[in-house]
């Protein structure tokens, strides 16, 4: 387990999943890829298939229709994996908490490791969040 985790931290590949968001969080995630922020410096790469991913970035307020798909996607991601919830919607559904189509918060369905608040969080915040996650996991593996 720990060796796998350790290998994962060298160059985490992220997959981005939106479950009924307003798009802003998703665009900010894409923004991280572009020249100004350029997360590839840290070895992070946005991948197109969940089967290649190590980190799942999840946004949005957990809409009924897409949560079904999200659950299935989570089953397909190779474990161990890390899950990061990006944005107020993914944290607590924000403004959409009373909506008829957003029944439960995401972290009741998928276990979340790190929460990045903000509506939307700035790209800097997203990068910082992922880096913190890596640090944390690294420390916990080193102890063992």
């Amino acid at each position: 387990m720990s060796i796998k985790l350790k290998a994962l931290l060298k160059s985490p590949w992220v997959f981005h999943l939106s479950t009924g968001s307003c798009n802003n969080c998703d665009i900010e995630i894409l923004d991280c890829l572009t020249p100004r922020f350029d997360i590839e410096r840290f070895g992070m790469l946005l991948v197109g298939s969940i089967k290649h991913a190590d980190v799942l970035l999840i946004t949005g307020s957990g809409n009924r229709k897409s949560m079904e798909r999200a659950k299935r996607l989570y089953e397909q991601i190779p474990k161990p994996c890390l899950v990061v919830a990006v944005g107020e919607c993914a944290l607590s559904r924000g403004m959409f908490i009373h909506s008829y189509n957003c029944p439960v918060p995401i972290d009741k369905v998928i276990p979340v490791d790190v929460y990045i608040p903000g509506c939307p969080p700035k790209p800097e915040a997203i990068i910082a969040g992922v880096v913190k996650l890596i640090e944390k996991v690294r420390k916990s593996t080193e102890k063992k």
């Binding site: 607590s92 908490i97 009373h98 008829y100 029944p103 439960v104 918060p105 009741k108």
Partner: peptide
């Protein structure tokens, strides 16, 4: 007259 029909919803922020 729409009423919540789903028994499993969670409406508090925990």
């Amino acid at each position: 007259d729409y009423k919540e029909w789903d028994k499993n919803v969670i409406r508090d922020r925990g």
